[in-house]
Each structure stands twice: as structure tokens, then as C-alpha cells.
Nucleic acid binder design. Structure first.
Lengths: 157, 157
DNA sequence: TTGCCTTTGACCTACTTTGACCTTCGCGCC
DNA sequence: GGCGCGAAGGTCAAAGTAGGTCAAAGGCAA
């Protein structure tokens, strides 16, 4: 077993010990403990604890910094995973997706309206293809947030 | 938790104890109590008790000097108008504004999280000053949307 | 051999903490 | 009243802490 696999196992162990499926680690400390380069932790996090594997990562720099690993109780549905992977999103696509999310009860009316506002072309005053790329980023970030917030629940987004 | 977070908590505690939402502190005394450099108090005040978060700071030097922390009461319309007029918005400003809106009950936790996601610098992968301009557009669009939706209600945002 | 995954290290960005030096104010003394 | 001193608070830059990124090098299997 290579280092990355070992680190993965270690983190999963920590997650198992925690009832809330949230674990905070200190990157340099952990790297030291496991005898690897700090950036290796990032590598493991991006390859093994990605969004579409059902994990979310948050972090903070500076004094008192940390990396927080959150395990979602359910993996996102096929449709959502598809949405998460788009590199570009047109205005029309975004509107369809928001409508879908709203229809299935993942978004309240207000939340849907907020999302529409954030990805509207008249708001994102940028040229193409930049606009569709930024829209994709915004949409993904918002969707990820929804997933995280409903992560405590059971029914899969 | 780092020192700054602790000081923030401490001050909020003091504010909670005071019905009028005003607290006077003595910088050196507090610094001594909390075991930190006096200027650290200023750091916390500027980063956590800014105007964008709904606080006002007054102070006086010399003998009998003090720092007064005032939590602004709900008089949203004016501040919201102010927010709507910004041509540029930094990440820090946006976060503070969202915190304020949430604290005063204009945003649910989910809505606040969605807004944060949409204006995050790591999401808006653009250079400056473009990033702050786009953020201002997005923020304004979302806020405008909220206002429209609560337009039917009574307590106007 | 070639391509993919892993590992490392140099350099970057963000947030915090501290200390040296500055300004303002009240007070007592002439 | 003017002066000077000590008591506060203000500012700012430097140092400290911690995580992020990226490209190059390494290793292994098809």
C-alpha cells in the first residue's frame, strides 16, 4: 500500500471515530505524524475525498488554521454529479437546472430566485467564453453548498 | 481556536449582557485580562466588528479613555441602500454584509450560505479589479431579488 | 515505452500576533 | 491661560503561522 492509500485510511479512521462525520486536521501536524510532505495531504484530499465521492473540504489559513473534512451521508445523484462536473454552463442550462432543483424540492422559491440572480447573464457582465466558465463556478459552488447543508439528512440530492 | 476568535467571543458576550447593545471597554485592561497585545484588540475590532457587520466603534484617548462598541440596531433600509450602491465589493466586505443580513434575520442560514458561495473569491476566478466588480453585480442582483420577494410582505428590507 | 498515478519541494496567499512609535486628552503646576 | 507629564488609544509594518498551488521528478503497470 502506498502512502496516499495509507493517509486515506487514516483520515477515514478519524471520520469513523467522529459521530458527526466531520473532522478537523492540521495539515503540517498530520504530515509530520505520517512522515510525508504537507502538500501530499492536499493530494489525497483532492483525489480521495472529492465532492463526487461524497466529501467536502473546508479550510482556513493563518494562525489557528485547519482543514475540515466533511463526509456527506449520501452521495449526490447522477444528475447532480453531472451538474457538478460541467466546465461551462450557459444561461439557459443554468435556468433549467435551477428549475429542476426547485421542482424536486431542493430549493425554496427564494433560494431559487437567489441562484437565478447570481448566474444571470446581465449580472455576469463578461465576454464569452469567460462568462459561461464563471457561471459554472458559481453554480457549482452554490450546488455544493446545498449538498453540504442537506448532507445531514438522508434523501440524496 | 485562536486568540482573535476568543476575543471576538468575549466581546459578543459582553454585548449580550448589555440590553442597550453598547459596551465600553478599556483597551489595555482587556488586553491584560486576555493576555494579548493591546493592538490585538484593534485588530479584532476592525476584522470582526466592522461597519459592514453592523457595528460601530467610538473611542477616546487620554486619561479616562475608552473604546465603545455599538451594535447597530435594525434600521436596514439605509444600510441596504448603501450596499446596493457599491460599485466594487471585496470578499471581506461581502462576507461581513452577509453576516449582517443573516444576523438580523433577513436571510436564512441556507440563503446566507448560498450567497457566500456565489461571491467567494475562489469561485470568482478573475483578476482584480474585475473580480470585485463582478462580485458587486452578483451581490446587488441577489439583494435586489430578495427585496422584490419580500416586497409583498410588511417589514421592508 | 508510455502513460498514469504518486511524491516532493519551491514558492504563494491568507490570517494572526506583536512591538515600536505616534496622537490625543486630562490634570496639575506655574 | 500655557506648559508639561503621564495615561490612553491608534497605526503600521514586520514576523509568525498555516494552508494552497504547481510543476517536476519518481515509480509502476500495461
Amino acid at each position: 500500500m502506498n502512502l496516499s492509500d495509507y493517509i486515506e485510511k487514516h483520515i477515514k479512521q478519524l471520520l469513523k471515530q467522529d459521530a458527526s462525520s466531520v473532522v478537523d486536521i492540521q495539515r503540517n501536524l498530520l504530515a509530520d505524524e505520517l512522515g510525508c510532505a504537507p502538500s501530499q495531504i492536499n493530494y489525497v484530499l483532492t483525489t480521495r475525498f472529492s465532492r463526487d465521492r461524497g466529501y467536502l473540504i473546508e479550510s482556513r489559513r493563518g494562525g489557528g488554521g485547519y482543514i475540515r473534512i466533511i463526509r456527506l451521508s449520501t452521495k449526490p445523484s447522477e444528475r447532480v454529479r453531472e451538474m457538478l462536473s460541467s466546465q461551462r454552463v450557459t444561461q439557459a442550462q443554468a435556468m433549467q437546472r435551477i428549475a429542476w432543483l426547485e421542482e424536486y424540492g431542493w430549493l425554496s422559491k427564494r433560494e431559487a430566485a437567489l441562484m437565478r440572480a447570481a448566474v444571470d447573464s446581465s449580472v455576469l457582465k463578461l465576454g464569452l467564453p469567460e462568462r459561461d466558465i464563471v457561471r459554472a463556478h458559481i453554480f457549482r459552488a452554490m450546488l455544493t453548498t446545498l449538498i453540504k447543508l442537506s448532507g445531514g439528512g438522508e434523501s440524496a440530492l
